[in-house]
Design a binder for these strands. Sequence first.
DNA 1: TTAGCGGTGTAGGAAATTCCTACAAGAGTA
DNA 2: TACTCTTGTAGGAATTTCCTACACCGCTAA
Lengths: 227, 227
Amino acid sequence: MSSIEPSAAGQGRLMASGQRRLRLYVTMGQRLLRDSLLFQILLHDEVELVGESETGVATLNRLKTATPSVLLIEENLQDNDGLTIAEHALAMNPSLSVLLISDTPVSSGRMAIYLEAGIKAVVSKDQPVQELIKTLFYIRNGQVYVGNWQQEPAPAAMLAYQALSGREREVAQLMASRLPVRDIAGRLGVSCKTVHSYKDRIFVKLGFERLPELILFMQRHQHGAAE
Amino acid sequence: MSSIEPSAAGQGRLMASGQRRLRLYVTMGQRLLRDSLLFQILLHDEVELVGESETGVATLNRLKTATPSVLLIEENLQDNDGLTIAEHALAMNPSLSVLLISDTPVSSGRMAIYLEAGIKAVVSKDQPVQELIKTLFYIRNGQVYVGNWQQEPAPAAMLAYQALSGREREVAQLMASRLPVRDIAGRLGVSCKTVHSYKDRIFVKLGFERLPELILFMQRHQHGAAE
DNA sequence: TTAGCGGTGTAGGAAATTCCTACAAGAGTA
DNA sequence: TACTCTTGTAGGAATTTCCTACACCGCTAA
């Protein structure tokens, strides 16, 4: 069927950064969180979901056939605690990277216990999603992530705004209010392409990938970190 | 600034469906859930986030200045319970539509209490995100949503697969595995445009809007509702 | 039995978006 | 002074999104 080159193994472009596909298994009790997290995570095309379950035992069963490279698991499961499950999983496959999701911020004491058990990172439910995603990608090659569980009071994000130049701020503003690119271009008296350029720069500077992130950012920025 | 027509009030295209912008306020304790839900919700361009907070009192304070049309609020907050807060909010502004998020499935008894209090709908954290989003849009004009809190065991979704035609299933399959459109076209021996057409039809039939939804759907479909 | 009608396989077009690259003017610095 | 970085501006290629088109095919109602 045609002589079309199958677009060279993998996605090329973005593939350069890390290793291969991140094979993910997710264990999380509540569907709402699991779903919305998954939608978020699956936006990244190097992630392959190899399985999911709601309970610890189900996870241990499936883990034999699914062969994830990363296990994202909640600390508190209905039938067990994530730590125990993770330990079993690690016993079966020591090269698995486990990211634990805890309900509350972790103390350094607990952190030590987790690391001891071979868990690669812990993210609490009080942290931003991006934090979780960043961590996920960070640990995927086996690295341990002992990042800012120290819970900085929302600094980086707001400081980032300072990094935007005047024109960039204007555009960020208008884009966050959902004004279509064409209108923004019209209002600023420049070409659409220029607006796109600003958009690109803004997204790079702030580390965003999609409009909702910017909207949320601007919203939070305006109504102060008062939040 | 130039004589460019500001692309006719609003977004035209999609705007036809409901009323105007859905002005949303979100009260949710845990950042992780709040964030990921918001990213999801803000993907819909008729939603305007007018505020968010973590606690009940903060919400009541902000509600005076922000003027949401819909309040999405968790049942269990750190400082109060969502129901109480919602009642206060409704006392201030009776036209507000409140969507309560409960930790567990709601019994019909509780449901009655909620409706009594003027709450428009309740979604539990055990339900799929789309359910929440659907409900959100449903109640935005003031309608009450007493949908399937009866928790059907995942029927509709899987049945939907039946609705796909042969070719559509092939494409769905390949797309879910993240094969680029061009490669899918090559493999099936048709043009890219054709593949896009299949994609469109698949998304319409299943009611999806983005790739992650399809990926998740196919994953779940294959590994049976066993889940 | 023939005229419709809806579903399926196929594809084209317009507009928008993503991801790069380009480049000149000013700011700052070695 | 020469060099580099940032900012304002924009173009191009490949993709995507959203519509529309159209020929078949099978089924139904007159």
